[in-house]
Design a protein around this nucleic acid. Structure first.
Lengths: 364, 364
DNA sequence: CCAACATTCGTAAACGTTTACGGAGTGCGT
DNA sequence: ACGCACTCCGTAAACGTTTACGAATGTTGG
């Protein structure tokens, strides 16, 4: 099946009518429409996207830009796959397709996005891994490409975003640890170019000071968000003169390396050092000791991103009258065993909430 | 900047010449070409992809279909991001763009691919997560869309593929374990619909029988390839009447759950049960005990996939005269602590190769 | 000086759609 | 019988590009 022309000839109908029939336009006889749809189905005809895009000036494709550095939490690994299914459940209602656009690691993300935008491959973009100053915002605004960012940025101008509640996470993590008696609380942070690293750190600093604990720069560990980074972080904690009694991880899998390095020195996580992590609860839960962590539903986040993006697109705004506002996405604390002890005595003074590993109850 | 027409008017040159200049066609004055390129750069002109695709009948986009089920190893998590950068390093040379096409979890993968193909969004496809009988092969062949599969299938007809050497992995894993005295070796396997599950299992069975060990179906543990699956797998192993002394995991992160469940019953991995895993060495290395595993370079695999795909496309075949053949991708064994003991005595009889966790040496 | 050729460029068709416009046919009210 | 509204459909233009073709100009060789 070549194109709509062949389909029209086969039906002995004009090509215009066929197009209208397929696109659900009103001025076409229902009987004719039925025939057209049947023939299209039979011959396996689907409109060529290039022709359609050219004519309509839109591609019906939404791009999700992804970068694979280990700097930021989003890039860790399953973040994108996670939000993807939420996004698609929204887009499917409008026959929009989602494509993930991986920025080559040797290409400047800004240049890459510029290329994608200029070629008019997508109608809208979802970007993440926001830098403190992110030129992509200006680029997309100028090009009038609707977009939404996962995370804020200091770049001037208003733009749609949904950010994780790092402020809340840092505050509640510190709150929880301080309540259990911790005073020296370390934290891991990615490069300060990445905005979330900056935000997370500032939130942590404020959370401490709010409770009368002085901020100690030596407790900020700059490592990659990876297993290896966790290993290095543990190493740096162990050599500190005044060793902290707790640490907050920005990525849950760092705990693997952290745990290992601690144990190599006979330091038991969950007894000698409290650990609180971030993001993937299923994984955190199976670590030993299980990791107290802040979880969220990537699926729901995907839905929110999709709705907010569409609410910012003129053609779809009508469907999402209540969306479109920027939101600070809440995280839920899932308590584990990794911080369930008294830092003074080392005793398991606080009983962790009971975990169940039944086949049925463990699904999140 | 609207289109090539505006650019042409601005230069007071015909639109045809501008196009030729930009595309490096020969019959254009070098001075003119210089002017055109300069103006295009200045005004930020980039050819509209729809117009170009429509005219040329090709999109310069290669699709990588991804599914997010936890059934197969490829879908686990960072597999796609890993091969992506290898793929792009090949595609970049031909100005081809790579897009990842996530199949919605509630849509039939075959139908999804059919839609993508029919809309002519991509010039070629990379598919993975092959089923034992995979209708996508027939679909793509019929549509004459060049493609390459990660993994084989029983579907009839020749098609380009690169498969991981499961046969070799299973054989060497069994070899290694048997050499250390193990006789009862369990294995985890995904659904038998997924071809690699079937292949892996058959390879394992043959490896056993080659060494005079009877295949015991009760040692085949069918669980999801996830942390939770690992937990369940350990549970199933523990309740067996005749408990195995070793287990082969099809996905490295399963070890997290497996380790945990074992320890909950006082069984020490690496002392009471040998474990060999699969695929991501950096992660495996930081587990405690570190996981002996079969690793590969996803980057190199990506390069091979890219080259083989292009070698199967008429327009690019010339650049890859030596590629195009199907290959069974070798895996390298990275020894760890998880199987470094004597199953009879439980003693650490075999000294594991020394691991280094220096900052510099740990990068793979 | 002329034919033959090379270089450079403009013209226009083509790719597959969608859609504004108008025409044909029908039914209805006057 | 006429005008009008309504339904349905065909015609053709337009989207932005690439490219076959040929025209115009300059160059060369005899």
């Amino acid at each position: 099946m070549k194109g709509i022309r062949q389909l029209a000839e086969h039906l002995d109908i004009s090509i215009g009518t066929v197009s209208r029939a397929l696109n659900g336009k009103p001025d076409v006889n229902e009987e004719t429409r039925r025939r057209v749809l049947a023939a299209a189905e039979e011959l396996g005809y689907v409109a060529n996207q290039s022709g359609r895009s050219l004519r309509q000036g839109e591609t019906k494709v939404i791009g999700l830009m992804i970068e694979s550095s280990t700097e930021a939490v989003e890039n860790a690994d399953n973040f994108f796959i996670g939000v993807t299914s939420g996004l698609q459940s929204v887009f499917a209602r409008h026959k929009l397709d989602l494509v993930m656009l991986p920025c080559p690691s040797d290409e400047d993300p800004h240049e890459y996005l510029k290329r994608i935008v200029a070629r008019r491959i997508v109608d809208a973009m979802i970007i993440s891994n926001m830098q403190r100053i992110d030129r992509r915002i200006d680029l997309l605004s100028r090009a009038k490409i609707p977009f939404i960012a996962v995370g804020r940025s200091l770049s001037p101008g208003n733009f749609p975003w949904i950010d994780l509640d790092f402020e809340g996470v840092a505050d509640r993590a510190v709150e929880r640890l301080v309540a259990r008696g911790h005073r020296r609380i370390a934290i891991t942070a990615p490069s300060s170019e990445v905005n979330l690293g900056y935000v997370f750190l500032e939130s942590y600093r404020r959370a401490l000071e709010r409770r009368g604990i002085a901020f100690d720069p030596s407790l900020v560990i700059r490592v990659k968000s990876s297993e290896h980074g966790g290993y290095q972080a543990a190493h740096e904690l162990l050599v500190l003169k005044e060793r902290p009694t707790a640490v907050i991880l920005i990525y849950e899998l760092m705990a693997i390396g952290l745990y290992r390095r601690l144990m190599e020195s006979g330091v038991m996580p969950g007894r000698d050092l409290a650990v609180i992590g971030f993001r993937d609860a299923p994984r955190a839960r199976f670590l030993q000791p299980s990791l107290s962590c802040f979880r969220m539903s990537l699926y729901d986040l995907g839905i929110a991103l999709g709705r907010t993006l569409l609410a910012n697109m003129p053609a779809y705004r009508q469907f999402y009258p209540d969306d479109g506002r920027n939101v600070v996405w809440p995280l839920e604390l899932v308590p584990g065993e990794s911080d369930a002890f008294d830092p003074g005595t080392g005793e398991k003074e606080f009983e962790p909430e009971r975990l169940s590993f039944d086949d049925r109850t463990v699904e999140f």
